[in-house]
Write a protein that binds this DNA or RNA. Structure first.
Lengths: 109, 109
DNA sequence: GGCACGTGTAAGTCTTAACTTACATACTTC
DNA sequence: GAAGTATGTAAGTTAAGACTTACACGTGCC
């Protein structure tokens, strides 16, 4: 994991609104407009946050058609469990310095 | 842990420069000016980042006197291991709601 | 005393992210 | 076809961080 990837997740999660979004989505899948109402924020704003969370791989969205024919964009939580400690961070920063060699270390024994 | 506390850590760690700072300090304690040179950033800027990291409890600084009499501000890594997952986040957001009766959901227990 | 090296901080600039407003599109129901 | 609800995005404003420059202060050394 490069520091850029790590940063994408950390920066995504390092914001009050997005923390609330995650908490809400963790309670069950919802569609955007409904979520915006629940959180009391504007839909475009929520949209931006969801985009960022999705890019970080924390939530996944899917456009679905209700049986009434209306298009609803549902979001649900993606399984994630990131460890933030000195080891994770130094490894990520070191991965940058390694240049092109991505140095896959799934099991740093 | 409230979301504010969680956020302090996540926001502190969610920045490229600070990631590098942590990685560098993880390699051993150093004083500010030396660290600034190594990272190639200005001392006041580093100062700000260190302040933020310290506030988040990720590093600890101590002003020491070298035997030559010069004051050096040393920083070293604080032990930390935070888990970033749905559970941590929902718990933190829920902790906020405790004590504030602003929004009681339609699920009275 | 003047230079080199260190800490600490104030004040400004600049960049980026967050947020708002507004509009286009689509389908349902009345 | 107008009203309601939904998605999607563009364009603008505002707020927040990040970053720079500059200075005050202290100590050791030539």
């Amino acid at each position: 994991m490069t520091s850029e990837e790590l940063l994408t997740v950390l920066a995504a999660v390092g914001h009050a609104q997005r923390l609330r979004v995650i908490a809400e989505v963790a309670g069950g899948r919802t569609y955007v407009s409904e979520l915006a109402r629940r959180l009391g924020i504007s839909r475009p704003l929520l949209y931006m946050h969801l985009e960022r969370l999705e890019k970080a791989g924390l939530v996944v969205g899917s456009l679905e058609l209700s049986k009434s024919g209306k298009a609803l964009k549902y979001f649900e939580l993606a399984p994630f469990d990131l460890r933030v400690n000195a080891e994770t961070i130094t490894a990520a920063v070191a991965a940058d310095a390694e240049g092109t060699d991505s140095d896959v270390k799934g099991n740093p024994t």
